[in-house]
Amino acid sequence: MSTAVIRYIDKPHPVTGVTNAKLGTWCFLASEVMLFGALFSAYVLLRTGVSEWPHGSQFLNVPLATLNTLILITSSVTMVMSWASLMLKQFGKYRLYLAITILLALAFLVVKGFEYGHKFEHHHFPSTNTFYAIYFTLTGLHGLHVIGGVVVNAYFLFFGKRMWETHPEQFAGRIECAGLYWHFVDLVWIFLFPVLYLL
C-alpha cells in the first residue's frame, strides 16, 4: 500500500456528496460545453453574417441523420442500462448492454461514413462553402468524440472484470462517469441534428 492514500476515490465526499471522479468528469464536460459552445458561436456568427444560407435539408441527408439520431439515443439508453445492471450486481447484463452501446456507436460511425462518402462523391468538401465547412467541422469533431467514447467503453468491456472483482464501487463509479461522457456526446448530437440538418 502506498503512503499516499487519496481520499474519496470510491466513497463520496461527506460535504460535496460526490466522488473525485464524478466531479472531475463534470468539470471536463463543462469544458466540453465551452468547446462546442465556441463552435456553435462560430456557426451563429457565420450564418448571421451572410445574406444567403442554405437550408440543411437541401444538401444533407435528413433520413440518414434521423436514423443516426435514433441510433445514438438508443445507445444512450443501453449505456445507462449497463450502469444500472452493475448497480444490481448483474455483471453479465452489464457486459451485454455495454457491448450493444459500442456496436451502436460503431453503427453511428458507419452511417456517418456513408454520409461523408456520399458528399465527397458529389465533390462537396469542407472548402466548398462555409456551410459545408461548419458541417464537416462540427460533425467531424463530434465523430472524434464518438470514437473516444468507443475506446473508453471498449476498455471497460475488455479490462473491467478485474477491477469489478476487487473494487466494485469504484468500478461502478467509473462506468457512471463513462456514461456521463457518452450521454454528453448524445446531447451534443441532439443539438447538432436540428441545427445542421433541419434549419
Partner: peptide, 23 residues
C-alpha cells in the same frame, strides 16, 4: 472554461489552413 474556445478556434484555423475552408 476559457481555454476550450481557443481550442475550437485553433481547430477552425487548422481547417482553414489544411482543408481549405474559409472560416
Amino acid at each position: 472554461l476559457a481555454f476550450p474556445p481557443l481550442e475550437a478556434a485553433g481547430v477552425l484555423q487548422l481547417m482553414d489552413r489544411l482543408a481549405g475552408t474559409s472560416f
